[in-house]
Nucleic acid binder design. Structure first.
Length: 801
RNA sequence: GCCGCUGUGGUGGAAUCGGCAGACACGAGGGACUUAAAAUCCCUUGGGGGCAACUCCGUAUCGGUUCAAGUCCGAUCAGCGGCACCA
């Protein structure tokens, strides 16, 4: 029988489409299952072979759950705003919408050709005004609750994209997207107060089932630390507050350092004798990109502020204040107390500027290096703290600071607020108006969506304004509050906006009254299983958790966490083991694979390629093995002629059911497929199987190779397709049990032979059987048995002397 | 520098609890079929030694625990990922 994969696949894809076989039901009385994959950015390059790895994996899980009787919502959409379409538009003078639509059509066709069981009636598109109406609505709610605010700040500025980047988008000091240099630039930006949720974003990780490395990375990124804020009095009258994780070392603070951007430099300009030097240093620091600033971290630089000193609150000692760029304005208070004896950076700085180093924790050698261990050591030179451990000293000094009003315990986070505006065109307009009288005012909900107007040129301006700023009809409006002339915000939202809540829209995608109905959200959320790339851990995944928590707080969604479970797939590399890229010429096009081997083979291969969580190189020759397997599966139809069930075959089949069922749940697709291959090999060796056995096997394979299995199901005379029957095979414990077993026999831990014995035999009987074996007997000859270890039905080890 | 992960045949990878290392595939070699090739089917395939039955070695390296270690413990080396002047 020839395997006509193209015809079979077209036939069933057509059937599924016409019958809407995978549409999620709105019958909320059934048990639900909501699997989710990250929706793609529809790039001009088309689908990458990496996409189907994730999509197929959850498709298998979705299909299995459907067969097991669940109401499954598996949907797809397009994260279609973003820079590539805009850059293409600039180059070719076409509307980004045109190219985006074209790309989406291509992606949709490609996904359909893979037989993915998406409910296409729920497709969403972030660039559709009916969708981004609700993205804007959420933004307005954030604004209303004071979580969106405009702030003049130093931002990451991509010199090539001419656009602000979020911290998460700067990787190694360059733009994550284009690799160009990122510099600091002071600009007014819309910010979202994600830091207000920092604590909950960490704590609530305990209640969700995410793979450990995702949790670790998120915690790491949020970067919670505990310590204290301490107030230092200065000679100009005001206090200078610092944050420290080591308040226990306060007696060792011999100088202070403020960041070059610290406001006190300008505030006390009159008192600073070397103000010029300070400003020169600040300007030099500002010119450095983030990259340079961290590259040069070995060499400490700085300027001593002359004319102002501070007083150490524990002993009233007068200490100098320095300016240095190793202190960041964006973390803590932008000022530190320097304890060179117990901090490596302060130590390096003190050596350069020849500042005193006072040991306050005994245990290291401060002549050589800073002693930073907090587990060992005893407090010295520290007045009331002397003799205490570091932990005890921390506690005591914090109490003292609180009593005296000189400080308090404080928690800090590395996480910073989310820079939310972009000076670009292809994104959601920010629905705010600026009025000279009323300030920033939200546009009324009834005016949503605020649609993106057409422009003639898509380039951002050199002074960093969005192309929208040139559209007078868009910019000029009236204040919704007082009616006077006012101007619209012309910045747009970042790409992460639309993707922060798309899974909520799948629940009720055509609702024009709410982002989704209460009932739909109540039933479908949280997402039961979300799979996506590790590269989104500190971006999309964190942002969407933040938005979801906010929506929970205002009563829009019923759960505090959006995703009950998060897993992650490894990347697929090129055949040469390098990342697939056009320049290396190692890109594999999924269309070619579907054409030459078929969608079922492609699906199976991507699942068989290796451990789902790990990166794996593509191998064209290995695909053949999967195709061969499917051909052999089809061939089973001809030998499914046995009338009577065979005990051994039944056992193999039931083992395969158990293995495949378990492996799907654990995403161990590769071993599940291996088990099915073994069963097929077994059936051929045996020379045949019954029709019923084959049908059970077909059901098991269905989630992996849906087209071929539907075809075979029909060939075997079934009238109703698999996708309509709702039965997942169950294994029978009784059929799994063996009557006899081969057990390894070891002598002194070394394998000397095996014996076939009845199941459940006791030690003496097995030993007697083993001694009948020539080799084992030879190994025992002339020796004294010291000990015998027998694990029932597993192994026998005889220890001799 | 800190945190995390991973090291298994020619290749991708298997191996619930410590219990027959290398499942399943790919590739390679040999054979059958064929005028021939492709496809298919059968056999061999971790390494060394032996005519053979057989035997020794083998999961990055070194050491330890144990009747028994790919798996547990300690040290080292290599690779990958995350964070990184975060006080």
């Amino acid at each position: 029988m020839k395997y006509e994969y193209s015809a079979i696949e077209k036939k069933w894809q057509k059937y599924w489409e016409e019958n809407e076989s995978f549409a999620a039901s709105n019958d909320y009385s059934k048990p639900k299952f909501y699997p989710l994959v990250e929706f793609p950015y529809p790039s001009g390059a088309g689908l990458h072979v990496g996409h189907p790895r994730s999509y197929t994996a959850l498709d298998i899980i979705a299909r299995k759950k459907r067969l097991a009787g669940y109401n499954v919502l598996y949907a797809m959409g397009w994260d279609a705003f973003g820079l590539p379409a805009e850059n293409y538009a600039i180059k070719n003078q076409v509307h980004p919408k045109t190219i985006t639509e074209k790309n989406i059509d291509r992606f949709r066709d490609q996904l359909k050709s893979l037989g993915l069981s998406f409910d296409w009636s729920r497709e969403v598109n972030t660039t559709d005004p009916n969708y981004y109406k609700w993205t804007q609505w959420i933004f307005l709610k954030l604004f209303e609750k004071g979580l969106a605010y405009k702030k003049e700040m130093a931002v990451n500025w991509c010199t090539s994209c001419k656009c602000v980047l979020a911290n998460e988008e700067v990787v190694d000091g360059v733009c994550e997207r284009c690799g160009s240099q990122v510099v600091r630039k002071v600009k007014e930006q819309w910010m979202l107060k994600i830091t207000a949720y920092a604590e909950r974003l960490i704590n609530d990780l305990d209640g969700v089932n995410y793979i450990p490395r995702v949790k670790t990375q998120q915690k790491n990124w949020i970067g919670r630390s505990t310590g204290a804020e301490v107030k230092f009095e200065t000679s100009v009258g005001s206090t200078l507050t610092v944050y420290t994780t080591r308040p226990d070392t306060l007696f060792g603070a011999t100088y202070m350092v403020i960041s070059p951007e610290h406001p006190m430099i300008d505030k006390y300009k009159e008192s600073i004798e070397n103000y010029e030097d300070c400003i020169a240093y600040r300007e030099a620091a500002a010119k450095k990109s983030d990259f340079e600033r961290t590259e040069l971290q070995k060499e400490k630089t700085g300027v001593c502020i002359k004319g102002i000193t501070a007083k150490n609150p524990v002993n009233d000692k007068e200490i100098p204040i320095y300016i240095s760029d190793y202190v960041l304005m964006s973390y803590g208070t932008g000022a530190i107390m320097a304890v060179p004896a117990h901090d490596e950076r302060d130590y390096a700085f003190a050596k350069v500027f020849d500042l005193p180093v006072i040991e306050v924790v005994k245990g290291g050698d401060i002549e050589k290096e800073a002693f930073t261990d907090i587990e060992s050591g005893e407090m010295v030179n520290s007045g009331m703290l002397n003799g205490l451990t570091v932990a005890e000293a921390k506690k005591k000094i914090i109490e003292w600071l609180a009593e005296t009003g000189k400080g308090e315990a404080k928690v800090n986070y590395k996480l910073r607020d989310w820079v939310f505006s972009r000076q670009r065109y292809w994104g959601e307009p920010i629905p705010l108006v600026h009025c000279d009288e009323c300030g920033w005012v939200a546009i009324p909900e009834s005016e949503l969506p605020l649609t993106l107007p057409d422009v003639e040129k898509y380039e951002p301006t050199d002074n960093g304004e969005s192309p929208l700023a040139k559209i007078e009809s868009f910019v000029n409006t009236t204040c919704p509050k007082c009616g006077r002339p006012a101007k619209r915000e012309t910045d747009i939202m970042p790409q992460w906006a639309g993707s922060s809540w798309y899974f909520l829209r799948y629940c009720d995608p055509h609702n024009d009254k709410e982002l989704a109905s209460k009932e739909a959200l109540e039933y479908w959320t949280p997402v039961d299983w979300y799979n996506g790339g590790m590269e989104h851990t500190t971006l999309h995944l964190l942002y969407s958790r933040f938005w979801h928590k906010f929506l929970y707080d205002i009563g829009v969604v019923p759960t505090a966490e959006p995703y009950a479970k998060r897993t992650s797939h490894g990347m697929i590399l090129g055949e040469n083991g390098a990342k697939m890229s056009k320049s290396l010429g190692n890109v594999v096009n999924p269309d070619d694979i579907v054409r030459d081997y078929g969608a079922d083979t492609m699906r199976l291969y991507e699942m068989f390629i290796g451990d789902f969580e790990k990166t794996a190189p593509w191998s064209t020759s290995s695909i053949k093995g999967c195709k061969r397997f499917l051909e052999r599966v089809l061939g089973l139809v001809e030998i499914a002629t046995l009338e009577k069930e065979d005990e051994e075959t039944e056992r193999e089949l039931h083992r395969t059911i158990r293995k495949v069922s378990d492996d799907i749940e654990q995403m161990k697709f590769n071993t599940g497929i291996a088990a099915m291959m073994s069963f097929v090999n077994f059936a051929y060796d045996k020379g045949g199987l019954t029709k019923e056995e084959l049908k059970t096997f077909i059901l098991l394979l269905n989630p992996f190779a849906p087209h071929l299995t539907e075809e075979m199901w029909e060939l075997l005379g079934e009238k109703k397709p698999i996708c309509e029957i709702g039965v997942w095979p169950e294994y029978d414990e009784k059929k799994l049990v063996d009557t006899s077993k081969v057990i390894p026999v070891q002598v002194n831990g070394k394998l000397r032979g095996t014996v076939k014995v009845a199941v459940g035999l006791d030690e003496a009987a097995v030993r007697a059987e083993a001694e009948k074996d020539e080799k084992i007997a030879a190994a025992l000859a002339g020796k004294t048995v010291v000990k015998v270890i027998y694990i029932k039905d597993k192994m026998l080890n005889i220890v001799v002397k």
